[in-house]
Amino acid sequence: MTRALRLGALRVGYEVRAYFRQGDTVFFTFLFPVVLLTIFSVSFSEANFGQTADGDEITAAWFFLPAMLAAGVLLSGLQNLAIDIAVEKSNGTLKRLAGSPLPVTSYFIGKIGQALATGILQAFVLLILAFTVFRVPLPEDPALWGQFAWIFLLGVTTSAILGIALSSVPRSGASATAVVIPIVLVLQFISGIFLRFSDLPEWLQQVAAIFPVKWMAQGMRSVFLPDELVVLEPNETWNLPGIALALGIWFVVGLVLTVLTFRWVRKNQ
């Protein structure tokens, strides 16, 4: 097991280095939420997102920052890994690894580590942009940052393991984006990433609550939005235990699916 962990750590370094050399993934996965936050902040600059208890106006950037942080968690984990692994399965990378004494656990640690490393950096860039350019007030209470840390870590890990599980669905590397992107897009639309969650019909909110993205977005709002806006949430609560439970269940589901479906090499290839 220590060997699996040691090689897993080695894989993280290898994966992260390769990730940042891929111009297209860096742009479409890593910088995408940054680009979107900028677009939303500029295009909705006249729209009304309410006021804080102190009478400060809630800007579009402030309103969309938690949504974009949640989108980043989804993209760095689920979208990135589902496509990445499906492509590696098709282009021979996994076949080569299968012939080496690399434990499969180390491979997963490498992928989850890559998602975490890139996700953390992405969140950092989003927060800096929001704070410096769009003047979004960030939480001062350390407890809120602790809350951010656990929601973020649980979110990325769950998102990553679901990405690994989803990677066995595309039949080829070429079809991977066609399979993964629509799933990710639909989830973002119904989970309060692109559209205000409180504007969605209640039945759709309930459908979204089955999936993990809604909970990631809600968790991020609980950290970064002023507490008064809790009235817009379902049952007027941030429901932190619900967030932990939903993400935890999806983590286990992803883990079980991964163990059941992951193969180095497609059968009868």
């Binding site: 290898y14 390769a18 012939g99």
Partner: peptide
């Protein structure tokens, strides 16, 4: 597996790593 060496029929592709990085990585396994 550690006692075998395998050169597959098709090279396939590799992530964005250099020759030395790839070999150092595999050596570590």
């Amino acid at each position: 597996k550690a006692r075998l060496g395998i050169v597959l029929q098709s090279s396939g592709e590799t992530g964005a790593v250099t020759v030395r990085e790839q070999l150092s990585h595999f050596a570590a396994l």
